[in-house]
């Protein structure tokens, strides 16, 4: 049985639960700290993908026609792991073991049965892989669509653009890439550090169809993700806020990777619950 498509209201509620899970996971990560803010910027993207876009069967996670979602943006596991728990790939209890030695969800590991099609880990690693995956899907006439989430600063990695060139060359219209445009990397604002400028124009110049949406607007994300251009790969630039949903984390570079103390945890929970 394939999963039901959630209403926008339900996806909103899902986002709230995911943010709460993310805070729990940040606590579970302990004194090593967790990548919090980059996860919060793509909560809506993950929620829309798993709630309304991706075809998958929770009773048969290896179903051959499932859409293939490949997660780049390595520091967003606090968004990726909660959405799969919410959708039933594993129990939300498992999230508490996040970053525990040899745990089910330590780091990023290729576990197709848990929905992880590829562990990209190092930035820029996934985009060439995704091109290979989409290309063989076309050559072997598979029904599934390939989705990939990238960070905007991740696109500073050269192989990402090598693969962008190849995706357009091979007319991979079974491929949709979402770029989380939160305009921040570890050291601060991307436009001050290494300006990405107009990413939609860049993608168009590379031979892709592209659009820009408000990345926390569920309706806009659903509309953009339901669009499937012909003859071209498709890039959605999702304008987001790094750390979205928790005031002291929003646009605060210190929260790229940080330790969640009990006091801050309570404050974050309160904000998320009251949002």
């Amino acid at each position: 049985m394939t999963r039901k498509i959630l209403s926008e209201e339900k996806i909103k509620a899902l986002c709230k639960r995911m943010r709460l899970h993310a805070m729990d996971m940040a606590v579970a990560a302990g004194n090593r700290g967790a990548h919090v803010s980059g996860s919060l910027s793509c909560i809506e993207i993950y929620a829309v993908l798993y709630g309304a876009i991706l075809k998958y069967d929770i009773d048969d996670p290896l179903w051959k026609d499932r859409d293939r979602f490949i997660a780049g943006k390595e520091h967003a596991r606090l968004a990726e792991y909660p959405v799969r728990a919410e959708m039933g790939f594993y129990s939300p209890d498992v999230l508490n073991s996040y970053e525990q030695n040899d745990g089910l969800l330590v780091g990023h590991q290729l576990k197709k049965e848990l929905g992880v099609e590829y562990a990209s880990m190092s930035l820029g690693m996934e985009m060439p892989f995704v091109v290979g995956k989409a290309l063989i899907a076309k050559q072997t006439e598979q029904k599934y669509h390939v989705y990939c989430l990238l960070g905007d600063a991740e696109c500073e990695e050269g192989p990402v653009w090598e693969a962008f060139i190849a995706a357009a060359h091979y007319k991979l219209d079974n491929l949709t890439v979402i770029i989380d445009r939160n305009c921040m990397s570890v050291d601060g604002n991307t436009e001050e550090l290494m300006a990405q400028l107009d990413m939609q124009k860049k993608m168009e110049a590379f031979g892709w169809e592209s659009t820009t949406v408000e990345g926390h607007d569920i309706h806009q994300l659903i509309e953009a993700l339901n669009h499937k251009p012909e003859g071209k790969p498709y890039a959605i630039i999702a304008k987001t806020t790094k750390g979205k949903g928790v005031s002291f984390i929003e646009n605060n570079k210190a929260w790229h990777q940080a330790v969640m103390t009990e006091q801050l945890y309570q404050k974050a929970l309160e904000e998320i619950k009251n949002s």
């Binding site: 985009m127 060439p128 290979g132 598979q142």
Partner: peptide, 10 residues
């Protein structure tokens, strides 16, 4: 090399 991995991955 990444594309090769993707082609083989299914």
């Amino acid at each position: 090399v990444g594309i090769a991995a993707g082609l083989s991955s299914e």
